[in-house]
Design a protein around this nucleic acid. Structure first.
Lengths: 337, 337
DNA sequence: CGAACAGCGGCAACCAGTTGCCACAGGTTG
DNA sequence: CAACCTGTGGCAACTGGTTGCCGCTGTTCG
């Protein structure tokens, strides 16, 4: 039609286009979509029909600017390459999508610095934030939470909604399992010192062993990776016990490999228990006995909690949500010789 | 100050606040940030200082509305829970971040439907799109590419920039490896029929075996999962060969497990080669010989290509980028008996 | 000495929605 | 019959930036 313009990008139609096509005001078009009931049913129907014909889609930026409603949520994970997070991401994304939200996943590569930057970048964009295994200090988290509704995953804070696995019961079940197999001394192989979860697991182990009249010992800290597990195997080799409980599966897998290379047989010489039941814990050798975290549900529940906050902006119950874990017995644990 | 309002959310300062604090016009503040050189150096310096004091941060929504520059890129992956994608995501995110972009990862759970929805939701928000292992038809992809610069990963299209692993050479190396071990017949265990990569790998195998005067056979298709590999093991058991090359590592791991359960020894009875070198392929039993894809680089390169398109909006060379793969020999392959 | 020009800042329109307030029509009530 | 209320649509201001264009000032050059 207009020969002076080349084949310009077909910029999508706006409410103004729909409005003129319908012979109504733009505000009416806006209300037809966002304010059901405010517009006469027939008019609304007509507008919706014309909009569909024109291929109108409301521009999320334009909507978000005055209202702050961007339909975006942020999920900040410590390490996307850690299988621990896969199911969490999926669970979160599923719930978010169902509620009409899009999720923005940011990987912070286990770095506090990067996490802070990611947060800065993301805050003005999103309506709410889930921090999954944050490396930030409590006070930094509070600063973020002041700007946007926030939920922390895998960490308990008194003034911010938290979602965690029930480490205490999980640990208790793991210890009971080892007792049944005749073990009397348990070594805890610790993860990173700064980890809230690590502290929690060690405390739970102490408590469980105390009640069941066992001995508990701790070595570490080690990196929460396969490599960290290898290092742990070497450290453990000096003063072995018949049973170990490892901070997480990644480390447990590395540790089993290290032990096997040193000639230690699993479970004949040493029983190994991991945590989380990540991808791979079922096909390593031997398959790992582990305290399964409800990974999918963890992600899903965190988003649900966040959506709840968004809906009724009064933050509700601050008691941390404890999601149940489950002991999965596989081949890495056996009767004490 | 204003007792009628409660402790309202401290909405962040705008260019207007900075402008009045500096005694200049808002447009000058805007230019001080986005148009270096356009504003007198001293003035710009003063503005930047005041802005920093006030804690001013430019609102990405407001910037994006008139300009379309949202600093967001979309990465759409077929399945976030597939370890294949972890390193891809990280590589992509790293490059994006370094260029000042934030990445929006969308999981489509291997569903065409979901992928289309994700695309719809994300298009108006982002400046460019990477489709990693898309389940969409070529024409659907073209529709998206018409709206935003698009790069496809793990798939070749003639009219859209593509980034793929060099499957041909990788397959060639795998076959050569098996020849050296004395194998003469190779079974290819196929992945999903709709997969572009599967077709490519089978074709490459045919070619390599033809040139090296071997026999090739194909079974499948199977689901590209551990479960699919288990199914493949049963199917393969009926008419075994001494060597198999499996569509990907996930399936190869499942297949090894299936074979082991059936009493087949690896690599004594059957040599197994996988593809991709995903997390876990080194600690399954036996460790898997595999054609490693440059996962991290795949993601990084896709984003680099996309950024290139964004910079010079003329789409450049459309020859697909072939990233080299590398054979990693581990314990799952051995000399033919 | 006047014209031309470069440097720099401001004005105002624009992006695409949302929403408070008003106006008008028609029905209801005292 | 007047006063009032309700349902529905429009006007215009607002979100927070960006940018084309204009005008002022001071310098340079013919």
């Amino acid at each position: 039609m207009d020969p002076t313009q080349g084949p310009r990008r077909p910029s999508s139609p706006t409410i103004y286009d729909v409005a003129t096509a319908c012979g109504v005001a733009p505000s009416t078009v806006s209300r037809a979509f966002s304010r059901p009931g405010r517009v006469n049913a027939e008019t609304a129907e007509r507008i919706r029909k014309v909009a569909a014909e024109l291929g109108y889609r409301t521009n999320p930026l334009a909507r978000g600017l005055p209202t702050g409603k961007t339909s975006l949520l942020a999920l900040i994970v410590a390490d996307v390459t850690n299988p621990f997070f896969f199911q969490i991401i999926r669970g979160a994304e599923r719930v978010a999508r169902k509620a009409g939200y899009t999720m923005l996943v940011a990987d912070v590569e286990e770095s506090m610095e990067t996490e802070r930057e990611a947060l800065d970048r993301v805050i003005p964009l999103v309506e709410g934030i889930v921090l999954a295994t944050s490396r930030l200090s409590d006070s930094s988290i509070r600063v973020a939470a002041k700007q946007r509704p926030t939920v922390v995953l895998n960490r308990v804070m008194t003034d911010i909604p938290s979602v965690v696995t029930d480490n205490e019961r999980g640990m208790r079940r793991a210890v009971e399992h080892l007792v049944e197999l005749g073990h009397t001394t348990i070594t805890y192989v610790a993860g990173p010192e700064a980890s809230w979860v690590d502290g929690m697991r060690w405390r739970s182990l102490r408590e469980a062993t105390y009640q069941l009249e066992l001995r508990a010992r701790r070595i570490g800290p080690f990196q929460p990776t396969v490599a960290g597990g290898l290092a742990a195997a070497r450290a453990f080799g000096a003063t072995p016990t018949s049973a170990v409980i490892v901070y997480n599966d990644l480390m447990a897998i590395g540790m089993m490999r290290g032990l096997t290379e040193m000639g230690t047989r699993i479970p004949e010489d040493v029983s190994v228990v991991g945590f989380d039941n990540i991808f791979g814990s079922d096909f390593c050798t031997p398959p790992l006995t582990t305290v399964a975290a409800p990974l999918h549900n963890l992600g899903a529940f965190a988003i649900k909690t966040l959506l709840g906050q968004l809906a009724s902006d009064a933050p509700r119950a601050l008691r941390p949500a404890l999601l149940p874990s489950q002991l999965i017995v596989r081949g890495s644990t056996g009767r004490k010789r």
